[in-house]
Design a protein around this nucleic acid. Structure first.
Lengths: 204, 204
DNA sequence: ATTTAATTTAACCAGATGGTCAAAAGTACT
DNA sequence: AGTACTTTTGACCATCTGGTTAAATTAAAT
């Protein structure tokens, strides 16, 4: 076993454990077992549970501040197409990592300074997007809307149905997961349609 | 100290502890301290951490399946006004209990059967609302939309900004909580506007 | 082959945690 | 005042948990 392999094994195991159970629920022993190593080796590579957690959290968070925002820097498509592209992209990422948003939200709920720091470091700068929205409002392509609301609406309709899927499945489909999965797949088109329908200037 | 008082004290303390820290993070000792009693008394009233948790979870969940749904049974207002009334009501409840939705979502993430059972018992029946949406589509007052999507959109835009407030505050306003609070207060009008704008039939 | 450094393990430890128990304190009833 | 029942407590326990240490194994360098 060389160092690189073990370290990677640990990270994968820790990722699963932390994201599935949260910091408090995660067990160092479980991570060691899943990585096929001794618990002491865990502390040899990452000094403490806290340190290991921070590595995992950082990785997870990075996944969700994607280059996807770059969509809004493209000049070959218009604003509505950018929204479509963004939503589709984001929903794809969410489908691949459905447990990460809930994980991030939960761990951030109590605002432990260690994590807040990480978020601040990595957090993306949305001001270009804000400006772009404001520009569209000025141009009159979309009706008057505060940029923050629009951003929040897009993120809400994309992320929430994933984060709250257990309850949503029960309430909407009496627990039928297949039906809910179908609904989710429909949302790749639905969400952007719904948004564009709402913001587009009806006079054009 | 009479029984009623102690029991109520425990429940209040447990509510705070569980909702703030989650089942795994909650400590029986902390609950006992906060209730001003002995830890053994906790087990005298509620046999185990699990049992106590279930009581708290049930209470919390009940708060969010409100009679508010009754809004949709009113006959004195039209569909759009119902949406407005619902959103305003729901956002008020959320403002009063901002930590409960995240709590419910997190505890349900791993689908422990004990909790799933509770949810199934209490979960509201949305079929009247679904039918109402479909009726509006037939009437042509709103454009064609699948009822589940509309419901999910309303809930998403209402709940997500509260659940994800720590990150949202950082990303949108660099951590300025006052600005975010202002934004949230604006949403009582914004969310229903945004929705109605999206679904209303433009030909009418 | 021998020394040196890195990797891995088994055995332990201290503190925390949920939970128990027998006795004490309180209450109600006669 | 005495009995019976409920409520409350302090002391205690078994187990779990993150973390440590010293020794063993393996790999790298000379």
């Amino acid at each position: 076993m060389n160092k690189t392999n073990t370290e990677e094994n640990i990270i994968q195991a820790a990722e699963y454990e932390f994201i599935e159970r949260g910091f408090e629920g995660a067990r160092m022993q479980a991570i060691a077992d899943k990585a096929g190593i001794n618990k002491a080796l865990l502390h040899y590579y990452f000094r403490s549970k806290q340190k290991l957690f921070e590595v995992i959290f950082k990785n997870a968070f990075k996944l969700f501040i994607p280059r996807i925002l770059n969509v809004f820097e493209r000049e070959d498509i218009n604003f509505f197409e950018k929204i479509e592209a963004f939503v589709e992209n984001y929903l794809n990422i969410l489908a691949k990592h459905p447990h990460i948003p809930g994980f991030i939200i939960h761990e951030l709920a109590n605002n432990p300074s260690s994590i807040v720091k990480i978020v601040q470091e990595i957090a993306p700068d949305l001001s270009p997007i804000k400006q772009q929205i404001e520009a569209e409002v000025s141009k009159g392509t979309i009706r008057n809307i505060r940029s923050e609301h629009l951003i929040l609406n897009v993120l809400s309709m994309s992320i929430f149905p994933i984060v709250a899927s257990p309850i949503a499945t029960m309430i909407l489909f009496n627990g039928d997961k297949k039906q809910y999965a179908t609904l989710l797949s429909e949302r790749k088109n639905h969400v952007s349609d719904f948004i564009i329908q709402s913001i587009k200037n009806p006079n054009l």
